[in-house]
Structure formats: structure tokens, C-alpha cells
Simulated assay, not measured.
Amino acid sequence: MELLSSRVIIRPRDPDRSLAFYRDALGLAVYREFPGGTVFFLGQGLLELSGRGDGAPSQDLALWLQVRDLTGVLAELRDRGVPVLREPRREPWGLDEAWISDPDGLRLVLVEVPEGHPLRTDLRAGHHPG
């Protein structure tokens, strides 16, 4: 199977409320709009809000969103009225993570990759940082 593109699709219980959350509170840039839906840029992926759901999202599902400055992002989100479910902390795997949720309760994990973490390692041959 050859994949050319991908996106996460969310069926919100209240489409207008979720649209306002992702567009206005989170400030995600719009990739495309169509009758009954909006697709947002989500880093290297896409997030589509379309249709209408009738159930709560599974607590087994979360969106992992990497940011450059976790403290700054949380301050912005608080200013926009977004509650923080869990304050930032360094996880055993070395990433700094905080949690928020969308209006339907879908958990969004905001992640900052700290200096020196293997995800920041440049694997190109012969490259030595600074």
C-alpha cells in the first residue's frame, strides 16, 4: 500500500462549537472548507471536522501535537479560555507534555521535545551539533 496523504477525521457532537475551538481557540490554519466540514493543518498532517457525532470519544484515543514552546502555548490557550487538564511535566520517555481537551472531551496531548532528546538528534552522517 502506497500512502499519499492522511488525516484524522473527527465527528463532533456540536460542529459549530468544535469549529470555534479548533479554529479560534487553538488557532489552527484552515487547509480546506467544504459544505459540512473544515480541514485544518495539523503539523505534518491534517485534521478534518465534518458531520456530526453522537457519542463521547474513547479515552483510549488522543491527538499528539508537538509545539515549540509548551509554556508559551499554554499561556495563549489560557488567555483564550481553554482549560488545562494536566499541567506540563517531564515524562519518563523524556518529553514535556501537558493535556487539554476539545469540546467533546477528546484529549489533546501538547508536547515539547526538550534539548538533548533523541527526537532532536540529527542522524545525518558526520553531523555534529553546535
Rank of each mutant, 00 (worst) to 15 (best):
Q66L: 08
D60W: 12
L49P: 01
L85R: 15
V73I: 11
G55T: 14
D60H: 14
G45M: 05
L26T: 01
E33Q: 09
A56I: 13
P92C: 06
V39G: 02
W93F: 10
A75G: 09
L77F: 10
L106S: 12
G45I: 02
L106H: 12
E91V: 13
R13C: 06
P88E: 04
V84P: 02
Y22Q: 07
R90Q: 14
D60P: 06
T71R: 04
Q59T: 12
E48G: 13
G45D: 08
G55A: 15
P88N: 04
D24A: 07
Q44C: 11
G45N: 11
D69F: 00
Y31Q: 10
I10D: 00
P12N: 07
V84Y: 05
R68Q: 10
P92M: 05
D79M: 11
S58E: 11
D24L: 05
S58N: 08
A98T: 08
L77G: 03
G55Y: 12
P92I: 03
L26A: 03
S18K: 01
F34Y: 13
D14P: 08
D24R: 04
S50K: 04
L77H: 05
F41I: 14
G45P: 02
G72N: 05
L28D: 00
L65Q: 08
L49S: 00
D69S: 04
R80S: 04
T38Q: 06
L70S: 00
A25I: 04
T38P: 03
A75L: 10
L26D: 00
D79S: 13
T38I: 09
A56R: 14
F40Q: 01
D16F: 08
V67A: 03
D24W: 04
L106F: 08
D96A: 15
A75K: 09
G43P: 02
D96W: 14
D60L: 14
D79W: 06
R17A: 13
R68I: 07
G51H: 08
G43D: 00
L85K: 14
P15L: 02
A75I: 09
F34S: 11
W99D: 15
S50H: 02
R32W: 11
W64M: 14
D60N: 15
P103C: 09
G51V: 10
G51P: 09
D69Q: 03
L63D: 00
E97Y: 05
P57Y: 04
